[in-house]
C-alpha cells in the first residue's frame, strides 16, 4: 500500500487519481503512525518551501519521514516535495529542509549570463535526459515531462542526479539515493512517461514487501 502524505500543501487529487489509473492501492493520511505502515510514501507539494517545512515540523511528519527513509523504505518527493528532501531554501528567507539529500534550493535568476531575460516560473514540457541508470528509470525512454516551478536544486551532490533538463541553467529533474527519490516535474501530469515512472516507483515499494 502506498501512502500519500497529506500536510495541507498541494494537489493530492491528481496523484491519487494517477495511482488509481495504475490500479495501485493507496491511502491518504496526515497521521505519522498510519503513514509509517505504508510500503512506500509519496510526498507531493506545491506552494512555498517555508510553509511546507513549518507544517511538516509542526505535525511531526518531518521526523516520521526521516525515520521512514532511515529504514530504507521507498519515498518519492514530487515538485516541492522533492525540494524539501534537500538541505534548505532561500524562498521567503532561509529555511532548513529535511536534509536527506545534499543540495540547496535556489530561485531561477530569470536572467542569463549575457543579460537576456527568461520567464519564471519554468512552466511547460521540457526534455529529460538521463544521467545515470536507476531502477526508477528502468525501461523509461527519455521524453518530455511537465514542469511548474520557480525554484530548482543547485549545488547538489552529482552522485544522486539521475535525470536532468535544461532551462537556462541545468535543472535536476530526477534524483535518487537508495530508495529515496525525487522528481521536480509532475509525473502525474506527464502523460505516458509520468505514468511509467510512477509505476516503477510503486513496483519498488511492492517488491520490498514481497522479498
Amino acid at each position: 500500500m502506498i501512502g500519500i502524505i497529506d500536510y495541507g500543501m498541494g494537489n493530492l487529487f491528481s496523484v491519487s487519481k494517477a495511482l488509481e489509473r495504475l490500479d495501485v492501492p493507496y491511502f491518504i493520511s496526515e497521521k505519522a503512525e498510519e503513514l509509517m505502515m505504508a510500503n512506500g510514501l509519496i510526498l507531493p507539494g506545491v506552494g512555498s518551501f517555508k510553509d511546507a517545512m513549518e507544517r511538516l515540523n509542526e505535525t511531526g511528519l518531518s521526523s516520521m519521514i526521516k525515520e521512514f527513509v532511515g529504514l530504507g523504505k521507498p519515498l518519492l518527493g514530487i515538485c516541492l516535495g522533492m525540494q524539501l528532501l534537500f538541505e534548505g531554501s532561500k524562498e521567503n528567507g532561509e529555511t532548513i529542509g529535511l536534509g536527506l539529500l545534499t543540495g540547496y534550493v535556489e530561485k531561477f535568476p530569470g536572467v542569463t549570463a549575457d543579460g537576456g531575460r527568461y520567464k519564471v516560473p519554468h512552466m511547460g514540457w521540457n526534455q529529460l535526459v538521463w544521467t545515470q541508470s536507476s531502477l526508477i528509470l528502468q525501461q523509461v525512454e527519455e521524453d518530455y515531462a511537465y514542469f511548474v516551478h520557480s525554484y530548482y536544486v543547485d549545488r547538489m551532490d552529482k552522485d544522486i542526479l539521475l535525470g536532468k533538463c535544461s532551462y537556462n541553467v541545468e535543472v535536476p529533474a530526477v534524483v535518487g539515493n537508495g530508495n529515496l527519490f525525487g522528481m521536480q516535474f509532475h509525473p502525474e501530469k506527464s502523460s505516458k512517461l509520468g505514468m511509467k515512472l510512477l509505476r516503477n516507483f510503486t513496483e519498488l515499494a511492492r517488491e520490498r514487501v514481497t522479498t
Binding site: 494517477a18 501530469k189 506527464s190 502523460s191
Partner: peptide, 8 residues
C-alpha cells in the same frame, strides 16, 4: 476529466 487525463 481529472480521473482520466494525465496532462494538465
Amino acid at each position: 476529466v481529472a480521473a482520466e487525463l494525465a496532462i494538465p
